[in-house]
C-alpha cells in the first residue's frame, strides 16, 4: 500500500490540484443553479476566457502580468454574469430548457469568438516567476505552481464556506436555495440576489481559468471538457451545496488524475462510472439539502 502510494504520489497531488480548480468552478455553478434554477452552460466558456486572458497578459513572465490577468478576468466575469442575469430575466417564467439553450448559445458564441481571436493552436502558459520550478515532495519532484494551486483552492473553499455559513449574506444565499419564493415574500428582491450570485459565480469561473492556465494551457474545446467536469462535480455533490461542491471536486480530481494515470484508455468510463455509482446510491447527489425545486 505504501509502495503504491509512493509510486502514485504525483498523480494524487495532481488530483488535489485539479480538485481545487474544479471546486472554484463548481461552487459558482452549483449555487447559481441551486438558488436561481439557472443552469449556466456558459460557465466553461467563461473559464476559457480566463485562460486566454492569461495567454494575453503573458502571465508567466512577471507577477504583474499574472495579477493583471486575474484582475481583468475577475472584472470580465462580474460583467458577464451581470449581463447573463439580465438576459435570463425575461425567461424566468419559462422552462429550464430555455435558459439552458440561451446559455448554450452564448457559450458557442464566446468559444468561437475566442477561436477567431487566438486561433486554433494549443497555447501553453508558464507559471509566474518563482512558481515555475519544481520542488521535492517525499522523494518525487513536483511543480511548485500546482502546490500553490492546491493551497489557493483550499483557502478559497474556507472563505466561501465562512461566507455562506457564517455571514448574513450567506444566510440569504442558503435561504434562497431552500425556498426562493419565501425569501421573495419577505421583501428581498430576487433579481438583485440573482445578479450578485451569477456575477460572483462567473467571476470565479474566469479566475479559475487564469489559475488553471499554467496547468491546462488554453485550447479550443477546453471549455466543454471543463464544463462537463464541473457538471459532474455539481451532480455528485448535490445542487446548491458548498460542502457537496468541495467533496465532489476532490473526488472527481482524484478520479480524473488517478484514472488517467493508471487506466488511460478507460478514464472516461471511470469518470462516468463514479457518477453512476453516486447517483444509484444517492439520486440527488451526496449533500443535496431539502431543496424546494427538486
Amino acid at each position: 500500500m505504501a509502495g503504491w502510494f509512493d509510486a502514485n504520489l504525483v498523480s494524487i497531488l495532481n488530483g488535489f490540484a485539479i480538485g481545487s480548480l474544479l471546486f472554484i468552478l463548481a461552487v459558482g455553478l452549483s449555487i447559481v443553479f441551486g438558488m436561481m434554477d439557472v443552469l449556466n452552460l456558459a460557465h466553461g466558456a467563461f473559464f476559457l476566457v480566463g485562460s486566454y486572458l492569461a495567454v494575453s497578459f503573458v502571465a508567466g513572465v512577471s507577477w504583474g502580468g499574472f495579477l493583471a490577468a486575474l484582475a481583468v478576468a475577475a472584472l470580465f466575469g462580474l460583467l458577464a454574469g451581470g449581463v447573463l442575469s439580465g438576459m435570463t430575466e425575461p425567461l424566468a417564467r419559462r422552462p429550464i430548457l430555455d435558459q439552458a439553450l440561451l446559455t448554450l448559445g452564448i457559450s458557442l458564441i464566446v468559444a468561437e469568438v475566442l477561436s477567431i481571436i487566438y486561433g486554433n493552436n494549443v497555447r501553453s502558459v508558464p507559471g509566474p516567476p518563482g512558481l515555475d520550478g519544481s520542488v521535492q515532495v517525499a522523494g518525487s519532484t513536483y511543480p511548485t505552481y500546482r502546490l500553490m494551486l492546491i493551497a489557493v483552492g483550499l483557502l478559497l473553499a474556507l472563505v466561501v464556506w465562512l461566507v455562506v455559513e457564517r455571514t448574513s449574506i450567506g444566510a440569504l444565499v442558503r435561504a434562497s436555495v431552500a425556498d426562493r419564493e419565501m425569501v421573495s415574500a419577505m421583501g428581498i428582491d430576487n433579481r438583485k440576489v440573482k445578479f450578485a450570485v451569477l456575477g460572483i459565480g462567473s467571476m470565479l469561473a474566469a479566475v479559475a481559468g487564469v489559475l488553471g492556465a499554467p496547468v491546462y494551457g488554453a485550447r479550443p474545446g477546453l471549455d466543454k471538457t471543463i464544463l462537463i467536469l464541473a457538471l459532474v462535480v455539481v451532480v455528485i455533490g448535490g445542487l446548491g451545496s458548498v460542502r457537496g461542491a468541495l467533496i465532489g471536486a476532490l473526488v472527481i480530481g482524484q478520479v480524473e488524475s488517478l484514472g488517467r494515470a493508471l487506466l488511460p484508455e478507460l478514464a472516461s468510463f471511470i469518470l462516468f462510472g463514479t457518477l453512476a455509482l453516486v447517483l444509484i446510491i444517492r439520486p440527488r447527489g451526496l449533500f443535496a439539502g431539502k431543496v424546494a425545486h427538486s
Binding site: 443553479f33 434554477d37 443552469l39 429550464i96 430548457l97 439552458a100 466543454k224 471538457t225 462537463i228 457538471l231 459532474v232 455539481v234 451532480v235 445542487l239 472516461s268 468510463f269 469518470l271 462516468f272 457518477l275 447517483l279 439520486p283 440527488r284 427538486s294
Partner: peptide, 17 residues
C-alpha cells in the same frame, strides 16, 4: 431515473463519454 435538470446534465455527460 434521475430526471429533471439532472437529465440535462447526465445526457451531456453521456454524450461527452
Amino acid at each position: 431515473r434521475s430526471g429533471g435538470v439532472y437529465f440535462l446534465m447526465l445526457t451531456l455527460a453521456i454524450g461527452e463519454l
